[in-house]
Design a protein around this nucleic acid. Structure first.
Lengths: 178, 178
DNA sequence: ATCATTGCAAAAGATTTGCAAGGTC
DNA sequence: GACCTTGCAAATCTTTTGCAATGAT
């Protein structure tokens, strides 16, 4: 296990409502660890992507990440296949969590951020995070009852957020079926 | 609102662990209602699909449904686009619920069956149903706290089912990241 | 020098759409 | 007869893959 000081690094400024978790390594350091431990190479593209991914705390898909990077021809460009391949590696490395929404893969920070779930607004398509220990207890208790060994879960509450509810107060239309 | 006796119809024999809900109309009757109310046509394909869908209680995707139907050329064949179009109508009509799993759309009975969630086994890919009122209370309480108006939710607990745990006891390999 | 990684082009898989022919009301 | 539906073919969208060139160790 390669050495490194075990200082607590500051993560990107968090407009993150749930706070952050203390971590010993930055996402990049942690990923480099992962690469070393698997005999994989520390390439510029991988470094660029760690940076692009951890410079904002938000939910994004492969497309959104591409847009955030320099376009083809420019310095720092990363091809779409490499983006997809690297996102998978980030998930394997524990840097990102992945879930599906409206038929595509959505990613969010995992490393250094606390467990949480989402509410999805069908009006503005915003994802709102929330945390509930009670939910975890409930999940584990149900699983135990079925002798099911839990690796994780995905919960998304579907509905209309506070902002959109207000906006809709006067222009109301049929609600989407979920 | 068109008349009909309000008898309780038996639904397909249920190897369904959560029991069933009392319903006034069969899925087909309910769908015909829906078609009438929207000025849509009661076609043979739609009737065939209601039948194919409600003859088994299980989770399925568009492909699995196609396989269950007569093949091209044979009587009762329904084309793939029609299957997709009709599945959407079933969801709109409240007959089916839809969710996403491994990048594809999975459907299950909604009409006539109680609310529930799933545990997904990463080994055998089985979906195990469970029901929890406490979860619903928890969901609604979290939503209320955020002034979020709930339309529904999707929860999937990911892990390894009891059967696969036993099977794995002696041939263990790395666990999948979720 | 070895061998992992990248970018390109193309493939693959799921789902959707334009449209002419056919079916339902 | 009006017009909704179907099936076909083709398009679309997202993600993956084969492979030769490039880059990391």
């Amino acid at each position: 296990m390669p050495a490194d000081d075990t200082q607590t690094r500051a993560l990107p400024p968090a407009d993150f409502s749930l706070g952050k978790v203390e971590v010993a390594l930055s996402p990049l350091e942690r990923f480099e660890e992962y690469l070393r431990s698997r005999g994989m190479r520390n390439t510029e593209q991988r470094r660029l992507l760690v940076d692009a991914v951890f410079s904002h705390h938000d939910h994004f898909d492969a497309d959104a990440l591409m847009v955030r990077l320099p376009s083809k021809g420019a310095a720092g460009y990363v091809s779409r296949p490499t983006v997809y391949r690297t996102l998978s590696e980030f998930v394997d490395a524990g840097l990102l969590r992945k879930f599906e929404l409206n038929g595509r893969s959505v990613y969010e920070h995992d490393y250094g951020y606390p467990q949480h779930d989402h509410m999805y607004c069908t009006q503005c398509h915003e994802l709102i995070e929330f945390q509930s220990d009670e939910l975890l207890r409930l999940r584990d208790s149900v699983a135990a009852k079925h002798r099911f060994s839990v690796l994780g879960h995905r919960l998304i509450v579907i509905g209309v957020c506070a902002a959109c509810r207000s906006a809709r107060r006067r222009s109301r239309r049929k609600q989407d079926r979920v």
